[in-house]
Design a binder for these strands. Structure first.
Lengths: 130, 130
DNA sequence: GCACGATATCTGGTTACGCAAGATATAGGG
DNA sequence: CCCTATATCTTGCGTAACCAGATATCGTGC
């Protein structure tokens, strides 16, 4: 099943406005996922729904976007993977942060903060000028 | 001439770390450029140097990145273009915000702020947990 | 017992954009 | 005369988000 997300984005597309949100998410998604995995391990589908719920739609992703991210994180050694096949129910793939993953999370958080601060500072300049 | 930029990025690449900054800029660049054009018209080369100076390196771009952005903005009707050929010196192409450009600037600023706020809120959650 | 929706994961192709690298042209200094 | 600085433009590459589809299992209703 495909999670139905990004309603605002679809509206923008219909209006001819390209969704800039898509681009903004570039590079932030990895950080977002690592952050969500920090408190406890989780499986893909759970992350998608968590994200939609916790950010009330502002940072939603489709599963088709998330799984490649998780795969990338696994390949990079930032998460470890564990399959769980319950007697009843669909098998789940649980992702857990590794030590390298925590280090990466810290690094990306810093990078994001630096970037966001630079943007905020820039956007503040000249707000009363002109 | 190519502006020499993003020293940090090159260091990261040398270390094997891919620069996430590159991805973070996605979608923000248009906003950045529109913002820089808000107080007064400017030419491409000027924008590159201004940006490097004003953000002390945090938001630098190369000219090879900027010119396509400016072209996109022109095609979209967000900036108007004027050539100036002085008696001495290289001709300059001046870009000026249109009314549509100012509207777009406002819209993008709002989108950025919304996104950044959502990110900050998310990254704050669980900062003391575990 | 079977159709259907919800849960859960994976894959292929498309699109878009930042950037490195190269080309081009003018002007001034050693 | 070459080298650097100013100034713009173009090609090609890599990467990442996303859409659309495929697959498989379970619970519920008819």
């Amino acid at each position: 099943m495909r999670y139905h997300l990004l309603v605002a984005d679809e509206q923008e597309r219909a209006e001819g406005r390209r969704g800039i949100e898509r681009e903004l998410k570039r590079g932030s998604l990895e950080l977002i996922v690592l952050h969500l995995l920090a408190p406890a391990e989780a499986y893909g589908y759970e992350i998608v729904s968590k994200l939609a719920a916790e950010t009330s739609g502002a940072l939603e992703v489709t599963d088709g976007t998330l799984y490649p991210v998780l795969y990338r994180l696994e390949r990079a050694g930032f998460v470890s993977v564990r399959w769980e096949t319950p007697q009843r129910g669909v098998p789940r793939k649980y992702y857990r942060l590794t030590d390298a993953g925590r280090a990466e999370l810290a690094a990306l958080t810093l990078e994001w903060t630096t970037f966001a601060r630079a943007m905020s500072r820039l956007l503040r300049t000249g707000r009363d000028a002109r």
